[in-house]
Amino acid sequence: MALLEVSNLDVRFALRQGEVRALRDVSFTLDRGERLGIVGESGAGKSVAAFTLLNLIAKPGYIAGGSIRFEGSDLARMSSRELRRVRGNRISMIFQDPMMTLNPVLSIGEQMVESLKAHRRISTQEARAIALHKLKQVYIPSPETRLDQYPHELSGGMRQRIIIAIALLLDPDIIVADEPTTALDVTIQAEIMTLLRELCEKHNVGLVLITHDLGVVSQMTQRTLVMYAGRVIEQGPTREIINDAQHPYTQGLLNALPQMTTPGSRLNQIPGSMPSLSNTPSGCAFHPRCQYRYDATGQPRRDCLDQVPEFVTSGNCQVACHMVRDMLAKEAS
């Protein structure tokens, strides 16, 4: 059994204008020590997926169906007391905005000691020693003095490092990181990512990394999940997806990168833009933008317009596309 097993998640936001279906039928697993990337464009539902993993979806949002099994027990059905034992302890989260984690009125040391003592029966002195050790692990210069500093006294890169230290504080099994470096500079970003990967490898911590940057996914993860309009449309080993994407949208995303064409020539653009989740197209949500939605005679394929594609297996990847399904079937016969 996988450490984390997400099945058929369905998350909705009940808004006055109507219901927004933010996640539909999202399923994936994460093994101990595995690093998984979730990619997709803005509004695809990546952050909702991250929040849902910790059952942090708040009104008007709710989990309408599916399960999030962590070591067998379903986070979607846990009491808030049980949830508190998992959150921050067994599964910790790094938010895009550091100030979602850091309390501005407490010193770094106070916050770290407080969360340690909330989960473990230890003395303040012991907690401080652990906090210091964690700060050293993320290469914070002069960690002793940092313990007494306040969040606003630190630079963005330093803050994000401290947040990683806090995420690691209780030796979690999984870290969920939602775009942990988008607010940072390129050179600092690279440092933080390398650090995060090294620490996960060293301590066998699983990572769910949310990003829109395919380069980051490529450097950081072993498996990748591609989202479009609230659904997973392709998942598999990162290398296979980067080198040999199957789904037309994943192919389109990769091909649109400037490095995929010779400098100065036109880029391979995907026409149109991602639909809003309150108004997703019928059938395959990608169909209005997909160049493969026509059959051999040039007629639009009915299944692309009417039917949500099921997953088919291609190599080690799962792909939700009618065209890919047909090609595989043809190959097999």
């Binding site: 970003q189 690279a190 940057d213 395919l214 490529s218 450097q219």
Partner: peptide, 24 residues
């Protein structure tokens, strides 16, 4: 040099990025 080496690339066999000390 540091800036170029910090770009996350799609290839997996890239050299380690140049580690800078300190902050801007």
């Amino acid at each position: 040099q540091a800036l170029l080496s910090a770009i996350p690339r799609l290839e997996d066999n890239r050299p380690e990025h140049v580690r800078l000390s300190g902050e801007v």
